[in-house]
Design a protein around this nucleic acid. Structure first.
Lengths: 142, 142
DNA sequence: ACATATATTATAATTATTCTAAACTATTGA
DNA sequence: TCAATAGTTTAGAATAATTATAATATATGT
């Protein structure tokens, strides 16, 4: 359980002012034992359920993007009707359960390290993401 | 250069009626030497530029989805605001150039085969997609 | 050619996201 | 401590991608 002052330091250290809203969002996102995968809509729902005061949707978007830009969140690429975010910012990959629309982290060892032998000339690799789409065994077509 | 009758057979064989619109879209998509990566908007532009008659946007969406469901197109997940499709339906992976928003196929040999050691219990793997995001070497932040 | 199932179309509706501009707040430094 | 200011929040409007609707048109089997 992280303290408020730790979040304040974290925000200040990356040039973000520690506002009431950002601290609340920090609590929701980072006061967890396990990795948290979410969409903006998920987050908005959790916030409005947990909080007495409300946070504007625009602020939630702003904050999530600010946290992503500062490297506190990763954005995950899934069939793009909406964006998914991940509080696990280490290098890792994902399963996506098409039955439930849930993201699940791959553990180290689930996949061998991806080895890229040829890159596009003149470009640098920003990220390598593996997405394994899974579904229940008895359904044929998505 | 495929003939119209070949597209008619292709469509019929998968239970899709060969309509004027679908045949035109087949020509645009499949009469190519190289893999074609596109968004719906790209396709709509090409169609309206090339064709004397116009095809409704709704039809373009319907057709692309029908072709995807029949396995003639693959949808590629990019963390983004729109869907990308690929006429290359073989198992392969992608580079995504963040400078130009262009998708580029990985060639066999660019990446070693992805080896998944542990899957989620009770689920079957539908796809494994690797996306390598690249950008110009001299730009720091996206 | 006829009946019917399937497609196409324009348009409206929906959804996720970004923009805007005004009100508000944290920080800096006098 | 307080004012100036730079950064934030906010509601709501705007935008963009996509899906739904329902009327019209077309393909197919008999």
């Amino acid at each position: 359980m992280l303290k408020n002052s730790e979040f304040i330091d974290k925000l200040r250290s990356s040039g973000l002012r520690p506002t009431k809203q950002r601290l609340k969002i920090c609590e929701v996102l980072f006061n967890r034992d396990k990795t948290f995968h979410f969409t903006i809509n998920d987050l908005a729902k959790i916030i409005s359920a947990k909080l007495n005061e409300k946070i504007s949707l625009a602020t939630i978007y702003n904050t999530v993007h600010a946290f992503k830009n500062k490297g506190y969140l990763k954005e995950i690429s899934i069939n793009s009707d909406k964006s998914y975010f991940d509080t696990n910012i280490t290098n890792h990959h994902h399963f996506f359960d098409e039955d439930t629309n849930q993201l699940i982290d791959c553990n180290k060892g689930d996949i061998e390290t991806i080895n890229i032998k040829n890159n596009i000339t003149g470009k640098k690799i920003n990220s390598v993401e593996v997405l394994i789409k899974v579904a229940s065994d008895n359904q044929n077509q998505k």
